[in-house]
Nucleic acid binder design. Structure first.
Length: 365
DNA sequence: GATGCGTGGGC
DNA sequence: TGCCCAAGCAT
């Protein structure tokens, strides 16, 4: 820590920008985003689904998934009845697959223990699988107007800039401080619709004008109230010491292909362990080195082809994927392997990691 | 409190 | 290419 950190009062309450909530709500109603498919509803199921999909995921990505998922599972009962594999297939490519498992569990808890009705308070919502403090606040504020603050990446950026808050957000204690401050900035006596406009306004401001790089301070509705904006130092915030380290790894993927009776192809897929990367998804056999992959094959592997390596980065790892393609005769199956043949045309119905799906879709002849 | 967990995009 | 980030949560 540097300067005069933790012990100082967060921000003297007299210095909190009065009128912030009022200005923000007015701006949101006039200039915020209104056409997103999960807006304009107070249905907790739809809001919940969107909030979970949007965790650490960009809006443009979720736009591809949300309508499809909602069409297949229009309400919490339909989702609760689904199998885990059905849910995972629709989540495939969206990442952070524990969200999908928790989403399914949550639906089943809501149906079995809450008569199919989501709890209405933020604190009750937080007890459900996959719903943390920020998601619970978003659902409660959007659906019931509860006076509670979210704290996502957008809000962290907006509020640290507004207040010139220089605590290191890599530290949980500083995040808590910021959340307490966020609570004090809420509309004091929110009228109907105010919490929707305020909550959406925080996110809209962070997603548009108060962007990470090159913020548009000159166009900002709260410039007059914004400490860093007045100083021209907005881009210094939020303060966060970086901790992320990526390990480099090489994985060998064994792509076993076999003809079907109808002339199309099948591929050999196994279920990933239920812990770790791509947990519970279907995937080709993975090996730590080429020798290990070769050791599982019958002697005659002359026709095996090494395809071009593919780079794929995850949060904590930089993967170099080495695909090995081998065509097997129809009657042969990999010995001792716990997997199954899947028609290439049918992999849409399975949960697959994004790079594996990509490899299978563009296999050479 | 620190770490693990996907994928796509900006610069 | 590498680094950071995006409507975070669970353990």
């Amino acid at each position: 820590m540097s300067g005069t950190p933790g012990q100082e009062p967060a921000v003297a309450s007299a210095a909190l920008p009065t009128g912030f909530a009022t200005v923000l709500m007015r701006w949101q109603r006039h200039s915020g985003r209104h056409g997103l498919p999960w807006q304009g509803t107070h249905d907790p199921y739809r809001v919940w689904l969107s909030e979970v999909m949007l965790q650490q995921t960009q809006v443009s990505t979720v736009l591809d998934y949300y309508p499809r998922f909602l069409s297949r599972f229009p309400d919490v009962q339909a989702l609760a009845r689904a199998t885990p594999d059905e849910v995972m297939a629709l989540w495939s490519g969206l990442g952070y697959y524990s969200r999908a498992r928790n989403l399914h569990r949550c639906a089943q808890v809501v149906v079995a223990q809450h008569a199919g009705v989501f709890p209405s308070t933020s604190s009750e919502l937080q007890t459900l699988p996959g719903i943390g403090a920020s998601t619970a606040a978003a659902i409660a504020a959007f659906c019931h107007g509860e006076r509670v603050s979210i704290l996502d990446g957008n809000v962290r950026r907006v509020l640290t800039r507004l207040l010139a808050f220089d605590g290191d957000l890599a530290q949980a204690a500083q995040q808590r401080r910021l959340w307490e401050i966020a609570q004090t900035l809420l509309p004091e006596q929110p009228a109907a619709g105010d919490m929707v406009a305020y909550t959406q306004g925080l996110m809209d401001l962070g997603a548009t004008l108060c962007s990470r790089s090159r913020p548009s301070c000159a166009a900002c509705p709260v410039l007059a109230l914004c400490r860093s904006g007045q100083d021209g130092t907005a881009s210094r915030y939020p303060v966060k010491t970086r901790t992320l380290k990526r390990r480099h790894e090489s994985w060998w993927l064994l792509l076993l292909r076999s003809p079907s009776d109808d002339g199309t192809h099948r591929v050999w897929l196994e279920r990933r362990p239920n812990q770790g990367i791509w947990a519970g998804l279907f995937c080709t056999p993975v090996f730590a080195d080429e020798a290990a992959a070769l050791a599982t094959l019958p002697p005659n592997t002359a026709r095996m082809r090494a395809l071009s390596p593919v780079a794929h980065s995850l949060t904590h790892r930089e993967l170099r994927l080495h695909p090995l393609l081998l065509d097997l005769p129809p009657s042969v199956s990999p010995a001792g392997a716990d997997g199954r043949w899947v028609a290439l045309g049918g992999i849409d119905a399975l949960g697959l990691p994004a790079p594996v799906r990509q490899l299978l879709v563009q296999l050479p002849d």
